[in-house]
Amino acid sequence: MHRLAAAPHIVWSVLFIIAPLMFVIYYTFTDANGKFTFSNIASLAQASYFEIFMRSICFALIATAVCLVIAYPIAYFISKAKPKTQKILMMLVMLPMWTNFLIRTYSWMALLEDTGIINTFLGKIGLGPIHMINTAGAVILGMVYNYLPYMILPIYSVMSKIDVKLIEAAYDLGSNPFQVLTGVIFPLSLSGVISGVTMVFVPSISTFYISQKLGGGNFDLIGDTIERQFQTAYNYNLGAAISFVLMILIMISMGIMNKYSDGETEVVV
């Protein structure tokens, strides 16, 4: 009786997870009339699409790295605080996510514009306006801002479980603080880092809203290109092909990441 309890879920998964992916593959390899073709995939070999993929990967990598650099110390500090403070601080990390991300990104527009809040402020204290909106930096900032909590959360939860005795033992055995960080804390928190990296990288590489608002449509990313095929150009086949390639790309990078993390844990042991 018990095993059958999973039946509704299995049926659901087949209908609404597997079947839709089959349709992505079907549309990838057919043309508008439903005939089999490789032309959708082939058209992605154009230099301009290659550039879009490269650009998206680059933006996402940089955003992920920046998130990691910001999040790691913060997660560490929080995990070192008193239990009650820890709880409050983590609550404060999660709280912004309850405000719709579209409106928060829109709010960044108001901050970054040439006539926006930051530049008005800079103007008042006599500093020249700095052009920030519609640049690559603004798009990356948008990604970092939106996905930073996804990086802090897993790193914190792993760090808060690190056995303090291990750190003390390292000090007792003569390590300096830097060695403790690189030799003990970092390897032990690596699983959190890996899941944080995935949780930031995947949404960053596929976003379409942030680049449109903060990049002014000058930096087409993969997400923008997919969205345009479905909502404006009415070219489902090309859109499906791009999604298909994106999916494979992500599977490959996850594979690499898992392999890399396995290797690292071996070092620890």
């Binding site: 299995i10 839709p20 992505v24 995935t198 994106l246 992500i250």
Partner: peptide, 25 residues
């Protein structure tokens, strides 16, 4: 089963969105 269950979590949202749209359409 677990691998299939994880797909919507691992896949980019936009891919989940368009795949379901294609099915419905």
């Amino acid at each position: 089963i677990m691998a299939v269950t994880n797909i919507p979590m691992m896949n980019p949202e936009i891919v989940t969105g368009i795949s379901m749209m294609l099915l419905f359409v």
